[in-house]
Amino acid sequence: MRASEDQLRIWMIGGLDGDSAAYTALLDALVPMLRSFFGRRLRGAVDDVEDLVQDTMIAIHTRRASYDRDRLFTAWAYAIARYKMIDHFRRSRVTVPMEGLENILIAEGFENATSARVDVDRLLDDLPAKQAQVIRQTKIEGLSTAEAAERGAISESAVKVSVHRGLLTLAKRLKGDG
């Protein structure tokens, strides 16, 4: 039987206050909830579901001090679970380097691969250099925000802002607004 929000919150607060029995009850109740949460989203990937349950349980444990006692526990716990799932998807994402892409696409019947790359290069060349660089790194080369930040010796926030602004500019131009 699934524990109610109130019961989970009581166990969490008890655990934060040093009640090990309450904290154990909370963790025991979380396992089936998280299995169900991940199982619905990763149909058939039983090993991944179990890995994500364990990763999320560890994250909940290590971040328990950040829980706001006045807020819903499940919202906090599921937010952590969502971030763990996003990290999982990012790690399992397959990227293809741009070098040699034309040959792959031509072999697959996409003869206009070279012109498509030229179009992308032309669009990016119209952006400020910093924006074009981080868009190439994160969206074309497949680098993470952290990797692009390290490569460019800038902060992750600066990478995110530059990518966002650059993509907005490109979207406006493609719509004919810019």
Score class of each variant (00 low, 15 high):
51 D>W: 03
92 S>P: 00
98 M>Q: 04
44 G>R: 06
96 V>Q: 05
63 R>G: 15
46 V>M: 13
39 G>Y: 10
96 V>G: 00
82 R>E: 03
82 R>S: 03
101 L>P: 00
102 E>T: 05
95 T>H: 10
67 Y>F: 15
97 P>F: 01
109 G>V: 06
106 I>E: 15
101 L>S: 01
71 R>G: 04
84 K>F: 03
79 A>Q: 10
59 A>K: 11
116 A>K: 11
103 N>R: 10
52 L>N: 10
99 E>T: 00
60 I>C: 14
74 T>W: 01
44 G>E: 12
40 R>S: 12
94 V>D: 01
75 A>F: 04
103 N>A: 14
61 H>F: 11
56 T>K: 08
73 F>D: 02
84 K>Q: 15
61 H>T: 07
114 T>A: 15
53 V>S: 09
74 T>Q: 11
105 L>R: 06
98 M>F: 02
59 A>I: 09
65 A>H: 14
52 L>D: 08
98 M>L: 09
61 H>R: 12
78 Y>T: 05
87 D>K: 03
111 E>I: 00
101 L>W: 01
89 F>C: 11
112 N>I: 01
117 R>M: 15
61 H>M: 10
57 M>A: 06
55 D>W: 11
92 S>T: 13
64 R>L: 13
61 H>L: 10
64 R>S: 12
44 G>K: 04
53 V>G: 06
48 D>F: 12
110 F>R: 08
84 K>P: 02
96 V>R: 03
116 A>E: 15
94 V>G: 00
87 D>V: 05
58 I>G: 03
58 I>D: 04
68 D>K: 08
72 L>Y: 08
82 R>K: 13
114 T>P: 05
90 R>W: 01
67 Y>P: 02
73 F>N: 01
61 H>P: 00
49 V>I: 13
102 E>V: 07
95 T>I: 10
103 N>K: 07
101 L>K: 01
73 F>W: 09
81 A>Q: 04
59 A>Y: 10
93 R>V: 03
102 E>F: 00
74 T>H: 01
98 M>D: 01
71 R>K: 15
72 L>G: 10
110 F>I: 07
103 N>V: 02
74 T>V: 07
48 D>M: 13
48 D>C: 13
117 R>V: 12
48 D>R: 14
51 D>M: 02
64 R>C: 12
103 N>H: 06
102 E>C: 03
104 I>H: 04
91 R>A: 12
90 R>K: 14
99 E>V: 01
96 V>D: 02
68 D>I: 02
42 L>D: 07
47 D>P: 01
59 A>D: 15
105 L>T: 00
